[in-house]
Design a protein around this nucleic acid. Structure first.
Length: 838
RNA sequence: GCCGAUGUGGUGAAAUUGGUAAACACGCGAGGUUUAGGACCUCGUGCCGCAAGGCUUGAAGGUUCGAGUCCUUCCAUCGGCACCA
């Protein structure tokens, strides 16, 4: 019998699919040990599943199957993140509504996931575009609105002229739209904004609670960008106005030789002296035209303009000029800085450009230097700082802050989350704009506020979404005063639905509430969350924000949603480059499944290397796994290996051919050496079985799937060395059970049809190992002289030093003759090291 | 520039607390089987050397009886952030 992967896989997929895959359903039984293993749900694009999805989903499937066999109640759900631009853009291109396209894509994805044998609990399937789902997305928005955490604000925002919508800061990469690559523009627009900054501190601090990869935590820390500093007030000279600046280095205050305002700073009009007004106006116009990105690209060349006005440095009462420059950003700190060119690179280059005074106040060696050719940004001793001379900068920070009555403040780089999109395919924002009452929440009983079908969903390119055209939908009575009002026509961003989906899996059909508190307590937090690193500052930050908000209003009981996060690495093309259509190096999972089967694909991706590494695909490599599965099949089904030992032992079997060999397996006459070898192998086999169970168990727990597979191969190789007829069936049972999370179809087939078990292998308890079998009776001890290996000796386990030393000495006699042994280091069951004088 | 991760054969990679570096595979070489190719099976395969032996985990130091593993400095690759005062 040949291993026919496609037949076997179809057969078992059909069996698993009975009763909507009931065998994979989580039971919600509160008395059982439970574990929540979650995948980042896919965006069902028209492209279908790629090999990167397969990697993460296989890892989580192995874990799920493993924990089920270990007796856990496992929650392993799947769903669809289907709102957002890709579906809508595809709809525009094909002139079909997204409502038609999305279900088709979902169907394709679901078939592909099924063809890979993933053990999802499909009874909990969710879809972010389903009104029964987004009802609760809207509900969460309303709670944010009621707490004042969702509000409208007129601000400069990122506008993508191609996607014709605003974007969140997180969606802009190097000044470009992360979706289409178009350079974003700066537009002043009134937008819905979520106050994520109110949670900045908690989002930062609680990272310490999480078992996440360090780089993801670092990315979030950098993104939140907390910095402690001081606000210092400067008096404007010849005026009774004041100006606040933010600095993290108040110790350098005596070196502040000018101030700089952002071009958007509200005080500019009031303080600019009449002679400089034209110049200032021109400069501001120029810089407001630039996008944030343009302002940030030319880092070296500084531009700016003098206001003609001076301020008083509160430390030394010196008059210092006030300048305007676009290297100062309005939306960080106070939009104004004190410039200390001697100790800051940006201020230094600005001062050089405009010939402003550079005054040294921090010196690494405590001496004054006549001139600086570059700024010194480190700590040191204060000079030129009046009463503070000679004090170390770290101490002077406090003292000078107190001296000038500075206010300690904490600033964050994190900005509030711009939450409206001028596009059709998203959750409608449940707000009614009433000319009398202002923004009014849609009553909760009217949720979901359904997204209406529409003829033209092209983006308007204006601040309204295409929904604005449907007057029957837009015109509405104000729920508060009953007067004529209009609906908000903007929709939510793609990230809304994915910010809480892990909660809905717990209770997907609950009509009364987002999630039953009892179920929430049973399952949260998610124990293991697997997905790509590309969501580090988008989805993962947004979801943590919403979760913390839901915690505050009592919907969830844990501080954090995802306890352990695992990022799978990227699978590169065979050329070592990122897979892409234009490079032509894309590997299609469907064709791999067709050629080698889902089991081979799953197992190959796991064998490739550590889960978190980026690894290139190798079409030779998958053949290696395919061969291995064939060997397992042959071992159990065809028992091809039976003649190995006799052949080695010198029995001539050349007159036997093909199937004759199989039939004649019991007729071998063994030579004494062959018998001895066989007995030795059989004795070793039980220890190897236990060790393999231990290794595979621990490796799966640690997600070391590549080494788990290695030890399965070693175990299989050992079994192949012994004639099948001598092997107790339990050795094959163990192999198939251990293999089943990796290659479930093949395993079920062998388990059922050849090892003749009645239950599914997936429902078999995971095997256990016992300590007493883990170690050999005899142990090889390494013999070293001065730490260099000179030989080995086999002794009984736990032999005394005396005994080992005696034997070892005789083995490496030639290295010791005439030498003075100074010291002997003995590590029981490991090594013995003779230290001799040289 | 700052932050994070990673550097081991021809390739993907293994290696409890520091204790036989290169497990498991791919590739390659030789042989077997096969009408042939493919598939399969057996043996070999870090480097130098005929051998004895010596060398080897990005580089250089250090700690130790002993370092891929610990410490210091440096280099390279990948990823993230980047005028955030």
């Amino acid at each position: 019998m040949k291993y026919s992967h496609s037949k076997i896989e179809k057969k078992w997929q059909k069996i698993w699919a009975r009763h909507n895959f009931r065998i994979w359903h989580a039971s919600d039984n509160p008395t059982k040990k439970h574990i929540y293993i979650l995948d980042m749900f896919p965006y069902p694009s028209g492209e279908g599943l790629h090999v990167g999805h397969v990697e993460g989903y296989t890892a989580s499937d192995i874990l799920s199957r493993f924990y089920r066999m270990q007796g856990y109640d496992v929650l392993h759900p799947m769903g669809w993140d289907a709102f957002g631009l890709p579906a809508e853009n595809y709809a525009l291109k094909t002139k079909k509504p997204p409502q038609d396209i999305v279900p088709k894509n979902i169907k394709r994805f679901k078939e592909q996931l099924r063809a890979l044998g993933f053990s999802y609990d499909w009874s909990r399937e969710i879809n972010t575009t389903d009104p029964n789902y987004y009802k609760w997305t809207q509900w969460i928005f309303l709670q944010l609105f009621k707490k004042g955490l969702a509000y409208e604000e007129e601000a400069y925002v990122n506008w993508c002229p191609n996607c014709k919508t605003v974007l969140a800061d997180e969606e802009v990469e190097e000044g470009k739209c992360d979706r289409c690559g178009t350079e974003v523009e700066r537009k002043k627009l009134k937008q819905w904004v979520l106050k994520i900054t109110a949670y900045a501190d908690r989002l930062l601090k609680d990272l310490d609670l999480l078992a996440w990869p360090e780089r993801v935590k670092t990315m979030q820390r950098n993104w939140i960008g907390r910095s402690e500093g001081v606000e210092i007030t400067f008096k404007i000279a010849d005026s009774d106005r004041y100006l606040k600046v933010f600095t993290t280095r108040p110790d350098t205050l005596f070196g502040a030789t000018y101030l700089v305002l952002a071009p958007e700073h509200p005080l500019i009009n009031d303080i600019t002296s009449s002679t400089y007004q034209n110049e200032v106006r021109r400069y501001i116009e120029e810089s407001l035209k630039k996008s944030d990105f343009e302002r940030q690209t030319n880092i070296k060349e500084k531009t700016g303009v003098f206001t003609g006005t001076y301020a008083i440095n509160p430390a030394n009462k010196e008059r210092i000029p006030i300048w305007i420059s676009d290297y100062v950003l309005m939306n960080y700190g106070t939009g104004a800085i004190m410039a200390v060119p001697a100790h800051d690179e940006r201020d230094f280059s600005f001062a050089q450009e405009f010939h402003l005074m550079i005054k040294e106040v921090i010196s690494p060696d405590g001496k004054e230097h006549l001139s600086l050719d570059k700024p010194y940004t480190g700590e040191g001793i204060l000079v030129n700082s009046g009463p503070f001379d000679g004090i170390h900068s770290t101490i002077a920070r406090e003292k000078i802050t107190f001296y000038v009555n500075g206010q300690k403040v904490i600033n964050y780089k994190l900005r509030d989350w711009i939450f409206s999109r001028q596009r059709y395919w998203g959750e409608p924002i449940p707000i009614i704009k009433c000319p009398r009452c202002g923004n009014v929440a849609v009553p909760e009983k009217d949720l979901p506020l359904k997204l209406p079908m529409i003829k033209k969903y092209e983006p308007t390119g204006e601040k309204e979404s295409p929904l604005a055209d449907i007057s029957s939908w837009v015109k509405v009575k104000c729920p508060q005063c009953g007067g004529e009002a209009l609906r908000e026509t903007n929709t939510m961003p793609q990230w809304a639905g994915s910010s809480w989906y892990y909660l809905r899996y717990l209770d997907p059909k609950n009509k009364k509430f987002l999630v039953d508190p009892k179920k929430e307590k049973t399952w949260l937090p998610v124990n293991i969350y697997i997905g790509g690193v590309e969501h580090a500052v988008l989805h993962l930050l947004y979801a943590r924000f919403w979760h913390k908000f839901l915690y505050d209003i009592g919907v969830v009981s844990t501080l954090e949603p995802f306890h352990k996060l695992i990022n799978q690495g990227i699978i590169l093309g065979e050329d070592g480059e990122k897979m892409s259509k234009s490079r032509g190096n894309v590997i299609n999972p469907d064709s791999i499944i067709k050629q080698y089967g889902a089991d081979s694909l799953r197992m190959y991706e796991m064998f490739l290397g550590p889960l978190a590494f980026s690894k290139p695909w190798s079409s030779q490599g998958i053949i290696g796994i395919y061969r291995y599965l064939n060997r397992v099949w042959d071992l159990i089904v065809n028992s091809k290996n039976f003649d190995v030992i006799p052949a080695k032992a010198g029995i001539r079997d050349s007159h036997l051919h093909g199937n004759d060999k199989l039939r004649r397996k019991d007729e071998f006459i063994m030579t004494p050496e062959a018998k001895k070898q066989l007995n030795h192998n059989l004795e070793a086999l039980e220890r190897i079985r236990h060790r393999t169970i231990q290794k595979v168990t621990e490796d799966i727990k640690n997600c070391h799937f590549n080494t788990a597979i290695s030890s399965l191969m070693e175990y299989t190789n050992k079994l192949t060395e012994i004639p099948t007829s001598y092997i107790n069936k339990k050795y094959f049972d163990t192999l198939v059970i251990l293999l089943s999370p990796f290659a479930p179809h093949l395993s079920e087939e062998l388990w059922h049809s050849y090892l003749k078990h009645r239950r599914l292998v997936a429902q078999e308890p995971w095997p256990t190992f016992s300590k007493k079998y883990l170690e050999d009776k005899n142990i090889t001890i390494v013999i070293q002289v001065n730490g260099r290996i000179r030989g080995t000796v086999e002794v009984a386990k736990d032999s005394s030093q005396e005994k080992v030393q005696k034997e070892a000495k005789s083995i490496i006699k030639k290295y010791l003759t005439g030498q003075n042994i100074r010291k002997v280091i003995f590590v029981p069951n490991k090594l013995i090291n003779f230290v001799i004088k040289s």
